[in-house]
Design a protein around this nucleic acid. Structure first.
Lengths: 257, 257
DNA sequence: TGTACATCAGTGAACGCGCGTTCACTGATGTAC
DNA sequence: TGTACATCAGTGAACGCGCGTTCACTGATGTAC
């Protein structure tokens, strides 16, 4: 079953990864519609024509980056939502998960924020589709409890969208709190890591137990390491928490109050 | 005092306007970082070099568009907030104002949504500054009542930011509900209209009195006119209203329970 | 009002440059026998 | 295991093209007298 890829296939995948990583890196300072094919291949160190062995054009690469950035978030959502009720614990876990995601994969998150309303339609549509599926999952998780309380399906969906939009807002606020380049651009290790790699984004920092990952993991209060202005980061987290608290207050009084 | 501009100055202003309008139009389908100087001057019908008489580069033009798109929103906010209490009337007025803004100036709103996290730093910063000032105004309007109820200044600001972010979200949702080109690109009249022109965006449709504008105005339930999918627009409005209702429920129970 | 000179918005030609795409190719990897 | 052929990821040269920027210029507008 688990046969190794042929040498040829493996080499091809490696080049593809290198193209995606180079693209993602270059997209930290510009948007997709101004990113050049030659720019990407130059960083990777292959001939421009090699690009076409992997992607039809830059927007094709962009769509692949969307899937990579958001496609693996679904499991993460389930983990966060399933194991908690709707109280402050959920809020803390959510904000912490977003913070960790931004800390671990700033380039991916920046890419999504930038291209969500960017100039490349297929990428915009791919992001909208992923976020829509994301909202579906949140709605599905909330539905049992809320509908028992008399909520309509429409209202559940409305609340789910509010949560998702708020999470995206919070993520971009975190991004702005920790500026672009930490210190020396990007070096070797992290360029291969991607959202959905085991353990990333699902932990909530101070939680006991379930430290199941087998690779080193960014810790919460780790200063230096390009964390931007740590005070600003804390302020963003505090604001996000209180906003979620206010929303969940509204939620509790929606039909009853 | 009100001396007419010299013929030369007037002509220069006209070209500048044409450059801004052409830029805005071209930015409906692409982002600023991929918009070319020659592209803009070609649409206007002047030599490429003429561009430099008005802007240092494209990001300079972008910053001018930001000011034009958002700089005049402040008065609008004051009008909406000042004359209503915090109830459903305010919510309806807010959603209607956003809808009207998007209907009247889709290109401006799209530009802001696209470049808010776009690849051109000066433009990003200009947008952030304007939205920050916007949040200041909202906070200022809310402060008296809320602080009398025991809110901290920080919490007032937190709520103001939530409202502003939600308005931006709502605006982009409206945009997505009414697709790009209405019918025949843009024709003569509307290209000169800009947010903040008298009467635009401040009225709330069914409100009596205060019809103070002196030029024709986009009406609420005016079908056709490139309104995209009217059903989708209504759905966006309904969702936005219920989300604001939920937020204002949370607001009412913030300190009291 | 008329004249002489200054200003400056817009011109048009020129420049060097990097772009996306094409193409026949090379040579390592894969496969059939 | 060895041989002959097929596949195909990556090469490197070439192409035509539109880009941003520069420059000396033109001619209408503005100003001083």
């Amino acid at each position: 079953m688990s046969h190794t890829l042929g040498v040829r296939q493996a080499q091809k995948q490696k080049t593809r990864r290198a193209l995606l990583d180079a693209g993602l890196r270059l997209l930290e300072d510009q948007s997709l519609s101004s990113l050049g094919l030659r720019e990407v291949t130059r960083v990777v160190g292959v001939a421009p024509a090699a690009f076409y062995r992997h992607f039809r054009d830059m927007s094709d690469l962009g769509v692949a980056l969307v899937e990579e950035s958001l496609g693996s978030l679904h499991g993460v959502v389930r983990v966060i939502l399933a194991e908690r009720d709707g109280g402050e614990q959920l809020i803390d876990a959510t904000v912490e998960a977003v913070a960790e995601l931004v800390r671990g994969y700033p380039a991916h998150i920046r890419f999504i924020a930038r291209e969500r309303h960017g100039g490349v339609r297929p990428v915009r549509e791919a992001i909208a589709a992923e976020l829509g599926r994301f909202a579906d999952e949140v709605a599905e998780a909330f539905a049992p409890q809320l509908m028992a309380e008399g909520w309509s399906l429409e209202d559940v969906r409305m609340l789910a969208e509010l949560y998702v939009d708020h999470m995206v807002m919070t993520a971009t606020a975190f991004l702005e709190a920790q500026p672009g380049e930490p210190s020396g651009a990007q070096s070797g290790e992290p360029s291969g890591a991607r959202p959905g790699d085991p353990g990333a984004g699902a932990q909530s920092g101070a939680q006991p137990g379930d430290q199941s990952g087998d690779q080193p993991e960014a810790q919460l209060a780790q200063p230096g390491e390009g964390a931007g202005d740590p005070e600003a980061v804390r302020r963003v987290a505090a604001t996000a928490r209180r906003q979620l608290l206010l929303i969940s207050l509204g939620r509790r009084h929606w039909r009853t109050g």
